[in-house]
Amino acid sequence: MDIKIMDIVGRRSYNCDILFRIIDIRKVNDQKIAVLYGEDFRLVADAPYEDLVVVDHLQRVKLEKEYRTLEEQSFKLFKQDVELIKNRQEYEATGGYVKPSNYFQMPGKVLHMDGDPSYLKKCMTLYEKVGIPVLGIHCNEKEMPERIGGLINLYRPDILVITGHDAYSKAKGKMTDINAYRHSKHFVQTVKEARKKIPHLDQLVIFAGACQSHFESLIHAGANFASSPERINIHALDPVYIVAKISFTPFMERINVWDVLRNTLTGEKGLGGIDTRGVLRTGMPYRPIQEEDE
């Protein structure tokens, strides 16, 4: 069967454990090499054309069902967390009175830069489902450092997500060498540029990284949360679960790192961070914005 760009494939040498999209097919030293993007994991990989196999419908449905079940479990746990936060906020906003009070909440605004338009679309759907104000920007990882300053000036976010695809290559160097990673250096530079605009860790909360990213460099550059401590793959939606927890935690409360990670699909091996304040603000009384008469 002829395999072409945008086909969903697996790698024979890895027993087709991860679904990939073919993004490009190149010729290197008379050998056809495919550039692959993970369908559910933020991983980019090169593979010999001969190692690829188109994943049949039944196998694809089976793998996708497993991933969707994990996503649903994670979302269910997250919703429980949000409900607890909202109930506690309502109690505090009303002073514990049973009488309903006319208050409003302002969750943190998110600027999400993503190197993959497909992942960005999935994330935007989840942001909308959760109720988080967000601006999503599709941007090639290499262009992120140049664009971030202008976007921060324009949107003034409370939370910044810098993600896309990444991968560590043993052939390119040791795990400590950032040049051995596909896009980690671009993520690091983007974080540094963002911190030039807003240095304070609690005035702009940053998540940065993708699959197998250089965690230590991202944290030292100024990210509050990053991937990947154990250089493992992270799920496409993991950044959203982290951001949502921050967005709905009151700004007077400190977020325990484990509380943020426990409902993600990847956990502490793929994600980590530092203690950070939440960004949710509660006010009263609530007044709807009146539209001007035409």
Score class of each variant (00 low, 15 high):
Ile289Ser: 13
Tyr103His: 15
Leu19Ile: 07
His235Tyr: 15
Val279Lys: 07
Met252Pro: 05
Val28Leu: 09
Arg182Gly: 04
Ser217Pro: 07
Gln212Thr: 03
Ile178Pro: 02
Ala47Ser: 12
His235Asp: 11
Ala194Pro: 05
Ala226Gln: 04
Lys76Leu: 11
Leu111Lys: 01
Ala194Asp: 02
Thr266Cys: 08
Tyr127Trp: 12
Leu204Pro: 01
Gly131Lys: 04
Ala194Glu: 06
Glu71Asp: 10
Glu128Thr: 14
Glu39Ala: 02
Ala210Ser: 12
Glu64Asn: 14
Ile255Glu: 00
Ser228Ala: 14
Leu36Lys: 02
Asp166Lys: 11
Gly115Leu: 00
Lys121Pro: 00
His183Asn: 15
Pro133Leu: 01
Pro48Lys: 11
Tyr127Arg: 03
Val240His: 01
Val61Ser: 11
Val161Gln: 02
Val98Ser: 14
Lys32Pro: 00
Val161Asp: 00
Phe41Lys: 11
Lys192Ser: 13
Pro199Cys: 05
Arg195Thr: 08
Leu126Lys: 05
Tyr14Val: 09
Arg195Phe: 09
Tyr97His: 14
Cys139Ile: 15
Lys62Tyr: 07
Ser74Ala: 13
Ile137Ala: 03
Glu268Lys: 15
Asp238Met: 04
His214Leu: 09
Ala47Asp: 03
Glu292Ile: 14
His165Tyr: 14
Leu151Met: 04
Arg182Gln: 03
Tyr37Leu: 01
Val161Met: 01
Val9Ser: 02
Ile3Asp: 02
Met124Cys: 10
Phe75Lys: 13
Gly150Leu: 09
Asn179Arg: 14
Lys129Gln: 13
Pro117Tyr: 15
Ile234His: 06
Asp238Thr: 07
Ile25Val: 13
Ile206Lys: 05
Asn15Gln: 14
Val55Tyr: 05
Glu253His: 13
Val161Leu: 08
Val53Arg: 12
His200Glu: 10
Val240Phe: 04
Thr276Asp: 01
Ile289Met: 14
Met124Gly: 09
His112Tyr: 09
Pro107Lys: 00
Gly108Tyr: 01
Leu111Tyr: 11
Pro100His: 06
Val205Glu: 01
Lys122Val: 02
Arg26Asn: 14
Val279Phe: 04
Gln203Ile: 05
Ile22Glu: 01
Gly270Ile: 11
Asp24Val: 10
Arg277Ala: 06
Gly283Met: 07
Arg195Gly: 06
Leu84Ile: 11
Thr69Asn: 12
His165Glu: 07
Lys86Ser: 13
Gly38Ile: 02
Ile152Ala: 07
